[in-house]
Amino acid sequence: MHFKGQILKMSSVFGNPINYYLNLSGDLISMNQLFGKKLHLKHVGYQCVNCGKDKKIYRMGFCKECFFESPYASETILRPELSTAHLGIEERDLEVEKEIQLQPHIVYLAYTGDVKVGVTRESQVPTRWIDQGATFAIPIARTTNRYEAGVIEVEMKKHLADKTNWRKMLQDERESDVDLIDFRNKIEDFFPKESKQFVIDENEVWKLDFPYEAPSKITSFTLDSKPEFEGVLKGIKGQYLCFNDGDFINVRSHEGYVIELDIS
């Protein structure tokens, strides 16, 4: 089978295990059905996720110009506490920013090799946790907009990590004694006083079952360093494809890359 298209982040369907679909220019390829198959990847160009031009990808699937102009790549995407749409103040495009920011958000704890704190739109649960490769997750607050969630996250970051250590996540060394409910109860004291109203007492921890077993060694590669690659697909965790010999590629970090994919 032969495919060609622009890479977008893999779509996923929550289940036991999680089902993944590679998105190539809108064509969804069921990846779970390809375990044990040989995949040949060849990088043949770029297509910016915003302007669609064949320009080198700078970050998050955007060419450099679009990264600094598009509202979908604004600083508030990475730093929710900088959101201003609730004040009616535009950063790049107020209508887009209202759409993104003025909706319910979840502040959560997730276990990705370490316990981390994060923020996501409520509509992105549990997709956000799947993309991060979290084996366990629990919401700790529900806010009415992105700014309110960012304020909580800023305080939580003083005590917890907010980034995923991708290598620890892929090593898949689960700590059986990690109790996210107990962890949540201990850190509630760190909530800003004005944010106490958003605390939620969830007593159900999400458990995510990835189609994946950690190999003995982990080696990541990119299509910049290795524009042509061939390997047997062994598993998927987060947005990482795992091949034989412990080779990994992060699909999401290659958004906007155009590839040819051959399956045998």
Rank of each mutant, 00 (worst) to 15 (best):
T84E: 13
I29C: 09
Y21N: 01
K207I: 12
Q101R: 00
K163S: 13
H105M: 08
S264N: 05
G88C: 11
I18K: 05
K186I: 11
Q103N: 09
H86D: 13
D179I: 05
E230G: 09
S70C: 11
K186W: 06
K53H: 06
T120P: 04
Y147C: 05
K234G: 12
I100V: 15
P17L: 08
T222R: 00
W166G: 01
G26Q: 04
R59T: 04
L233W: 02
V125A: 07
R142Q: 14
H105C: 04
D177F: 15
Q47E: 00
G150W: 08
I187W: 03
S12F: 07
Q197R: 13
D172R: 07
K193P: 06
I57E: 03
S83Q: 10
M169N: 11
L22C: 02
V258K: 02
L41N: 09
I263K: 00
A149G: 11
H2C: 12
F229W: 04
I18V: 15
S176L: 12
R184V: 06
T112W: 05
Y72D: 12
K56P: 07
G36Q: 02
P104Q: 14
K193A: 11
K237L: 10
W206K: 13
Q124N: 10
P227K: 02
S264L: 07
A214F: 06
K168C: 09
I200W: 01
S12I: 09
L24N: 02
K158P: 00
L170H: 08
T143L: 13
P192N: 00
E69T: 15
A161I: 09
K116I: 14
C51E: 05
D224G: 00
E91L: 07
F67C: 00
Y108F: 06
I249M: 02
N32D: 01
Q33F: 15
I263R: 02
D201T: 13
D27M: 14
E175D: 15
L94Y: 07
A134N: 11
K168V: 11
F210G: 01
N16P: 02
G26Y: 04
E122Q: 14
S253P: 08
R121K: 03
V49F: 01
E204C: 06
E148Q: 15
Y257I: 15
S176P: 08
L223A: 04
K56T: 13
N250C: 08
T164H: 04
N203M: 07
Y257H: 12
E97C: 01
T112V: 14
I152E: 09
K55A: 00
D189R: 13
L94F: 03
V258W: 03
H2F: 15
P192R: 03
K38A: 06
A161T: 13
S25A: 01
A85R: 06
G61R: 12
S70D: 05
H86W: 12
V251G: 07
F221H: 04
T84A: 13
E175H: 14
S176I: 10
A134Y: 06
E153W: 05
K56N: 12
T112G: 01
K64F: 15
D189I: 14
G256Q: 04
R184L: 06
F191N: 02
D162C: 05
E228Q: 13
